[in-house]
Design a protein around this nucleic acid. Structure first.
Lengths: 248, 248
DNA sequence: TTTGCGTCGATTGTCGACAGTTGAATTAAA
DNA sequence: TTTAATTCAACTGTCGACAATCGACGCAAA
């Protein structure tokens, strides 16, 4: 029994023999994330296969991967579609996100090192800098990154994965309206109470502050959504060429 | 604009034009749930297709559906496998479950009606009855059902769906060792504090009690797992009747 | 006995094909 | 002008096929 020796250090990373299916999923994810594919839009596997230069089988498998994540919906005999939220659903997703993030953050307080805390502070500083520079689009990205760090420090990889999934879903809508936030500096500032609670290593306080922080975001976004900024489902309100770009 | 009248009552359920892929996913899910497919076991799509009498395409699509839920793992060029937990991962899943359930339960306290509360109490009574009758297997099922009711009353369908997914994952291991619990009545009894907190409609108290309740379960299960009761990959180590009870 | 190298059957990833549907355009009827 | 049939191209779900790959086996060399 000489096989539980030292866990020999890895020299090379295991290289990823990525199959087409997951690469397709990746592409579609990206397309949804940056708005090339809009909520509710049809994703014809045949067409996608043509564009990607593959056969339909791996495309369909890739879409199935996204389907059980909720990003893609399939109506049998009708095809695949980018999932389109209504306001209630959006609220549920935000609620879920909050649930996960509060839990992770609480754990993070207990686990993080001084260095971790400093990284979080630096990230918030970045939000201020981007606000100064007027880079609102990038600020949204870095805002997400801050919250992702929190989840990561929580130490539950499963929760982190879910957060990433949700982030991808929300990005589909949010990134598009990055410029709709009126006051980027206010965004940055709203992270200060979180930092304070983190510094104090006070889980209950962090929980409370984060709850408020996320609640604000949810209300803001859901409200925007309700005003129709997001509502891509009733296309009649759009101009013709807008509609045409949306549907195929 | 006469089209937002009363939301005409549905008479027939929309019948499901189930495609093969999702039916395959269903079958595999069930097979994992009741132990016909064991953690770590290979799921060859060709073989599965042969058994189900279909071609490989829908089988592979179905497996992809389960893959992003974490139930199935695919190693490119090597095939699909039923995901096998190690103890750490199991702990993460339990942690996630707790996170979701605490959140849902808190919301449930605020939303539930008297009747809902009564249903929950009845469900716990069922646990007592099953303990008396020695129906430990069924007790595990009804135990899950109780916790699912909580999640359902929370009102977030997204969270409920996640709970169901996790339940399916855990059932793969847990249901099998139902009879390994030493004291079924103790199981039933452990739900009493929850009922009390629910009756009192005290979210904080419910949260605390539920936390403890789930923590106990987690510790119990993870411990069992560590002793090897779950490690179905090396069944050889178990006695014959243990094995038989496990694999039905 | 261990280590390394072909061989070979089984399995995987991907492809192209085909029948059955769908939804949009088109035509005919009211 | 509205409503109902008809037509048709495009797409979907599923299938069988094929080359590439894997891993188990056996055999030879150390």
């Amino acid at each position: 029994m000489s096989d539980d020796q030292s866990p020999e250090p890895q020299i090379f990373e295991t290289l990823q023999p990525a199959d087409l299916a997951s690469r397709v999923a990746d592409q579609v994810l990206r397309a949804i994330g940056d708005g090339r594919l809009r909520p509710g839009e049809k994703v014809a596997d045949a067409r996608l296969a043509r564009e990607l230069g593959t056969s339909r089988a791996p495309v369909r498998e890739g879409l199935r991967l996204l389907e059980s994540q909720g990003l893609i919906v399939s109506h049998p005999r009708r095809g695949f579609f980018v999932h389109a939220y209504d306001a209630d659903e959006l609220k549920e997703v935000y609620d879920l996100r909050e649930c996960l993030e509060l839990h992770a953050a609480e754990a993070a307080v207990a686990r993080m090192t001084k260095a971790d805390c400093a990284r979080l502070e630096a990230q918030v500083q970045k939000l201020y800098d981007l606000a100064d520079e007027g880079q609102t689009q990038e600020q949204v990205v870095q805002d997400f990154a801050f919250h992702r760090m929190l989840c990561e420090l929580g130490g539950n990889s499963r929760i982190l994965r879910l957060f990433d999934q949700i982030a991808a879903e929300l990005r589909a809508g949010i990134a598009l309206v990055g410029q709709l936030y009126d006051d980027p500096e206010e965004i940055a500032r709203s992270h200060d109470p979180l930092i304070k609670a983190l510094r104090a290593r006070d889980p209950a306080r962090l929980r409370a502050e984060l709850h408020e922080h996320l609640q604000d975001a949810q209300i803001h976004v859901v409200q925007l959504f309700r005003t129709g900024a997001f509502d891509l489902t009733n296309l009649d309100k759009l101009s013709d060429d807008q509609r045409n770009r949306l549907l195929r």
